[in-house]
């Protein structure tokens, strides 16, 4: 028998979990199609709207120039969270969670595997759409240059923080909380000012908006596209917030996991 000790951290266990989800993706074309379907639909719709508004004159035409960048960045945020949450929900749907929870897989390894899968899903779903945006609408997303890396990193960190919190809530409350996973990000759509500047919001709402890391990213994107200025201050602010958000989400996830052991919900996953 395997009396040898089990390492406290193992890349092999993370790799095992990534393989588990990769096998699943590979075996299911609807899952692969779903990854690219919605980003593509969004890109086409906003691309046409941007083309139409660009033909107008004045401020509207200028603002329209940011729509495609905004929708693609929004998809990074939204798809990043969904990619993370999907990997967790797959374990609930397949009633496999108890198998994992009694294995030597540590919570941090479980989370890192979901982060890896979130990246893989994002690459499959969003990267091809950025090239299609170039082909159909002449919009070069990659032309955002080095700033794109800062936008990308900050949006992903936020998406993982929210995904982690959603996973904890589903772990604690069962699949009854699954709906939250799908809808929670839409709360961020108006508050993070994806398509309009923060200044549009009422004064009392603006501090709340600035406390959300993606707000700085979308403001930074508008500054880059409209004024050709990279706002490093905004990126640093977003990163600082993300560190707080990730820390709180990790703490919340562990608390919710502990609570699920208290109420025995791990023995009845799926209900």
């Amino acid at each position: 028998m395997s009396a040898a000790s089990s390492p406290a951290f193992s890349f092999s266990r993370i790799f095992a979990m990534v393989m588990r989800h990769w096998y699943l993706l590979r075996s299911s074309w609807p899952r692969l199609l779903e990854l690219i379907y919605w980003p593509l639909v969004q890109m086409i719709m906003w691309g046409f709207l941007q083309s139409f508004m660009a033909k107008q004159t004045g401020a509207l035409a200028v603002a329209a120039g940011t729509f495609l960048a905004a929708v693609l960045l929004w998809d990074i945020l939204f798809r990043g969270q969904l990619g993370f949450s999907f990997s967790f929900l797959e374990e609930m749907w397949s009633r496999n969670l108890a198998n994992l929870m009694i294995s030597p897989l540590r919570p941090i390894e479980f989370v890192l595997s979901m982060i890896t899968m979130s990246l893989i899903r994002l690459i499959i779903g969003v990267v091809p759409v950025t090239f299609l945006a170039m082909f159909f609408f002449g919009f070069n997303f990659w032309g955002l240059g080095i700033a794109l890396a800062a936008f990308f990193a900050n949006l992903l960190l936020t998406s993982w923080a929210i995904g982690l919190l959603c996973a904890g809530l589903v772990l604690r409350n069962g699949l009854g909380a699954e709906g939250l996973t799908w809808s929670i990000m839409f709360l961020f759509l108006p508050l993070t000012c994806v398509y309009y500047p923060v200044a549009i919001l009422p004064a009392w709402l603006q501090p709340i908006s600035w406390a959300l890391p993606p707000t700085s990213v979308f403001e930074g994107m508008r500054a880059l596209v409209l004024e050709h200025t990279f706002r490093a201050d905004l990126m640093l602010w977003a990163f600082g917030l993300n560190v707080i958000w990730i820390s709180l989400a990790g703490w919340g996830f562990l608390k919710l996991m502990h609570s699920s052991k208290q109420i025995g919900s791990l023995m009845s996953v799926g209900e």
Binding site: S6, S103, L105
Partner: peptide
């Protein structure tokens, strides 16, 4: 079995 073998460091 391959996934669980790796999880258990077989």
């Amino acid at each position: 079995l391959s996934v669980f073998g790796r999880l258990y460091s077989v």
